[in-house]
Amino acid sequence: MASQGTKRSYEQMETDGERQNATEIRASVGKMIGGIGRFYIQMCTELKLSDYEGRLIQNSLTIERMVLSAFDERRNKYLEEHPSAGKDPKKTGGPIYRRVNGKWMRELILYDKEEIRRIWRQANNGDDATAGLTHMMIWHSNLNDATYQRTRALVRTGMDPRMCSLMQGSTLPRRSGAAGAAVKGVGTMVMELVRMIKRGINDRNFWRGENGRKTRIAYERMCNILKGKFQTAAQKAMMDQVRESRNPGNAEFEDLTFLARSALILRGSVAHKSCLPACVYGPAVASGYDFEREGYSLVGIDPFRLLQNSQVYSLIRPNENPAHKSQLVWMACHSAAFEDLRVLSFIKGTKVLPRGKLSTRGVQIASNENMETMESSTLELRSRYWAIRTRSGGNTNQQRASAGQISIQPTFSVQRNLPFDRTTIMAAFNGNTEGRTSDMRTEIIRMMESARPEDVSFQGRGVFELSDEKAASPIVPSFDMSNEGSYFFGDNAEEYDN
């Protein structure tokens, strides 16, 4: 783990906690998980779902989305002020799938948001429990990260689609708070800032007046979040320049895209947490497990152990491969979309394939898809080993990566060399080191050039047997250095459309 220093740990961010010791953190995270579980059980009762239907990941996603929508204050306010045809701002819903006479049927349900809020609060001892809501947002974000390569979004903001390893959390809503900021990748933060800068260039009043003052505060806050992700002084200094700019424009845009590229080699610290679907927490609570009393951590053995003992089902389209669908969801559960496939294969105990080789589309089923041909199958979400999630980018030494994705962002704290394609990355730096950030740029390029592919990161860190909950005997895996390590390699994943 990167030293926490003055930073709060993510469990504290996750639970809005002030400084807590490890036991208190485990208890408050457990409380959050228990609340999600209780809410899910109650919703299944309301909807009269069978046990099997309640364990269907598509039903879980609909129920999670309903509660997130019920608590989305800004959108609710907007919907009330701008009524649109056929949208009731006070209601929320989605597809629920039921097994009827041996076939899967889709039923569109509609609930009062007020009623959903009441059920959620009741499951969370009367609190709004925003930490639990954020947790579900991060699960949705991790699922998107594993399912889609955001080529269009990258290109629109002047970045290269091969930089997708920097895009963790790119679909997280803005209201996801400190826990959300911690899991956002460098590219995601750059993209958010670039969008602001572009608006400022096109709209003279963007930075002016009372609204402009708020915009400015948001801009500086985002700059500080991004600065905190960088691990070298030169990158941090460049972020200070971007933040202090009187009138952010093209120079800042250039600096930010430069920094994003540099992060492929001088990786930023991005938190990883295993956020599971509500249909995993519900049955665990129903079986009598007391998360608050037992304590829970999002970055240790607990999620692995929970998945070892969970039964989750998914709808499967006619030509999809259930094992591939399982891999997709497994990666999402562990926030591992940008991790090295060699490491993932070792931990999972079966070969993890790149996205383009998977015969599976996303987990969600569109409303126009034919239910007649839908089957369902068990998702295999178990693992051979477990490993500690990392909050750091690993040290800054790398190795060759593949054509589709030119770097990785480690999820697990496991000893290995970190793949990246130096030639491709360095070719993108057209040696432009003039301007006010020239000395920093020169320094950053120097550090990137001296990074050695064969150097090892996370020295001495290994994986653990599932029986080793105290992480007492690390097993340090050895990897084939020459092997392909990137998930979005030469990829044809669908595009994420909101």
Rank of each mutant, 00 (worst) to 15 (best):
E64G: 10
K103W: 07
T171M: 02
I197C: 02
A366C: 04
Y148K: 03
L264D: 03
A278C: 10
T360R: 01
G228L: 02
R382D: 13
F420T: 02
L341H: 00
R121W: 10
A323W: 05
R400S: 12
T6N: 10
A22M: 11
M196N: 05
S345C: 12
R175L: 04
E434M: 10
I388F: 03
G132S: 14
L466D: 09
E254T: 02
W207F: 13
F479K: 05
K198A: 03
N144Q: 14
L193A: 06
C333G: 11
F291W: 05
A493V: 12
L379R: 01
F346L: 07
E495S: 09
N483M: 14
N250Y: 08
F464G: 01
D16F: 02
I347Y: 03
K103R: 15
L264T: 09
T411G: 06
E465M: 13
M331R: 10
N319L: 15
V476K: 01
C223G: 08
A27D: 04
W386E: 05
D480A: 13
D112I: 02
S262H: 08
E434R: 01
R461M: 05
G268C: 06
Q168P: 06
R452W: 04
Q12E: 05
T92E: 07
G282P: 00
L256G: 06
T171R: 02
R19T: 01
M13E: 03
C333L: 14
K273Q: 10
D16C: 09
R461C: 03
E449M: 10
A179Y: 05
E469Y: 07
I217K: 10
G180M: 10
S438V: 01
V456C: 02
G177Y: 09
K7Y: 02
I197A: 04
F291V: 12
R208Y: 11
S478H: 07
G185A: 09
S413K: 13
D302Q: 14
R416P: 00
Y111V: 13
T433D: 04
Q231S: 10
R216A: 11
R65N: 14
I41W: 14
T134C: 15
V352L: 14
R361S: 11
I365E: 03
E465S: 00
T437F: 03
K357H: 14
I408T: 15
M448T: 15
E14A: 07
H135P: 00
Q311G: 15
E380L: 01
G209E: 07
R175M: 15
R195W: 05
S60D: 08
F412V: 11
V352C: 15
V463C: 09
P83D: 00
F488M: 07
Y97L: 13
E294C: 11
Y111S: 08
D491Y: 12
K273C: 03
C164N: 15
N498T: 05
S392T: 13
P303K: 05
S50V: 12
E107N: 15
I116L: 15
L259P: 07
E73D: 10
D439M: 08
Q122I: 13
S486M: 10
Q399M: 09
R208P: 00
D127A: 11
S69Y: 14
A401W: 01
M189C: 12
N370F: 14
M137L: 15
R74Q: 08
T433N: 15
G394S: 04
Y97K: 00
E244W: 02
S165K: 00
N211D: 13
Q459C: 12
N430V: 11
S486G: 03
L307W: 05
R99W: 07
S9Y: 05
Y385A: 13
L315V: 15
S335I: 02
T45D: 06
V476W: 14
F291P: 14
F412T: 01
A260S: 15
G17C: 10
L61T: 15
M440Y: 15
E449P: 04
L108Y: 05
I388D: 03
I197P: 02
D112R: 03
L466E: 06
E210T: 04
I138T: 09
A182L: 11
V285E: 14
V456G: 03
T151M: 14
F71L: 13
